[in-house]
Design a protein around this nucleic acid. Structure first.
Lengths: 263, 263
DNA sequence: CGAGCGATTGATCGCCATCAAAGTGGGTGG
DNA sequence: CCACCCACTTTGATGGCGATCAATCGCTCG
């Protein structure tokens, strides 16, 4: 593991990994095929993403062309304009997809979580700079090999299509937000999205984990960092949220949050 | 032809249609299969869209389940939330895909031109209200039949995927515009898009046809109608454009327009 | 303990929205 | 054929939201 990762503890210990695997119903016999040193050993997204669409035999084929890539926070996976020679599947951590205008104005098209594809494109070049928000780990596939694989496995092709369609739906949602919502509405909408992406514990209050820094939120919502702060402050003052820490919110009143999001 | 179409002259006369067909290289023998009364007779987008990905035999199969639908200006093809029972391919005219916030704020996700698919979704419901900007004509396919067809024709599946990928790229472009560009930049960017979609005549000055009304432009760009007018006025004053009519612009200085679009 | 970065809070400014009032032109009916 | 009408567009005056500029806070790390 490269030294660029600040804390070893960011990664699951081996026995944690084992627990995850046994929690995933159905495919346990397949763990027998994997040596602990194999790149896919203990991958927590076995039942998400790429792998979900595949039978064990198909997966074995795909595995052979995949390697892993580890990113430290803020480390780039690729730059906008790089030739698109690989596709990736996120297994740990969160990434951001950013794009710059010539004068440096920045936009974040989205955040990618474990189970998401990144770097998939029909173009020759990556259209985004992809960076780690938090320490991240990915499966990397050479594009040529991946394309061949898709060609032979209709399930994977369907999966890719459905992935593109879902991303399109999300992008259309976001366009409405950017075109027509006010700053408070943007923040509320964003927090609801983050609630969805945060693992909740039954019986405990609703939480929203914000793995990214304030400027990432601002560049995602098309506002400024000061506005993000002020609107969070307003939600706090209105007792809609409470801040456990800068990256960790409690949602005290989800209905109120939804009302402020305007659809 | 329904009376809702104001002017018969909006549609190509039969001999015009014939000229178009002979302009399309390659598939002329296939015209023998079509009686003049057939819905696909003389379709000017035979080599675009759906049909392009298919051989003549495949196309014949698809044809059997397609009918045509004609729309008067501002007539709706479907409403946001309607169950998505059909998919369409635009053959004439321009459509707009709109979405409303609960309080009536409107956003236009995009405009669809001849050759474009519309109404294609993986959801059960249409996610947009689709309306005619100008008098329009479409090929309509029952979704169930269309899905079956796609299932059996990998070329069509690839075509659909590529279509989704392209729409995604366009949506990502538009998000940057909405998140980070100023009003003058938005207008300039939009005009460049319209130049691309306008058929140019070699040797004549560059033109941009704007089939939609000002409020559609505003709702597409996330600004107000008055701002659209003012920025068009500014471009006119700067001798970057000239207005032949409200819907028809001459581009006097494309480089200047590109400079004002900021990428 | 101090340095430095990110977050917050405060003060002011400017772009674009909003409100208001013509101007324009295509279509209709007299 | 002309005059009116109505919808769309343009232009003008004002205001507000969020950007910008500026200062402070507070946490993490050396």
């Amino acid at each position: 593991m490269p030294h660029s990762l600040k804390a070893e503890s960011n990664w699951p210990s081996p026995d944690k990994v084992s627990r995850w695997r046994t929690h995933e119903g159905g495919r346990t016999n397949d763990s027998n095929e994997l040596a602990p040193g194999h790149p896919c050993f203990g991958c927590p997204v076995r039942d998400l993403a790429v792998c979900n669409a595949l039978g064990d035999d198909e997966l074995a084929v795909l595995r052979r062309c995949g390697t892993t890539r580890v990113l430290a926070p803020n480390e780039a996976l690729c730059w906008e304009g790089d030739s698109a020679r690989h596709v990736y599947s996120v297994s740990h951590g969160v990434l951001r997809l950013t794009r710059l205008l010539p004068d440096g104005r920045r936009h974040i098209a989205g955040f990618s979580y474990p189970g998401d594809f990144v770097g998939v494109t029909l173009e020759d070049e990556h259209s985004f700079t992809i960076e780690a928000v938090s320490a991240a780990k990915l499966c990397r596939f050479p594009r040529a090999r991946f394309d061949e694989f898709v060609e032979v496995h209709p399930n994977m092709a369907r999966r890719l299509y459905s992935n593109a369609a879902n991303q399109l739906v999300a992008a259309q949602q976001q366009m409405v937000l950017l075109a027509r919502k006010t700053a408070p509405e943007r923040l509320a909408t964003f927090l609801l999205q983050m609630v969805e992406r945060t693992k909740q514990v039954a019986g405990e209050p609703l939480r929203a984990r914000l793995p990214m820094v304030r400027i990432d939120i601002a560049d995602y919502l098309g506002i400024r960092i000061e506005t993000v702060s002020r609107e969070l402050g307003a939600l706090k003052a209105a007792r809609v949220i409470r801040m456990q820490s800068v990256h960790d919110l409690l949602i005290l009143n989800r209905d109120q949050l939804a009302a402020r999001a305007s659809g």
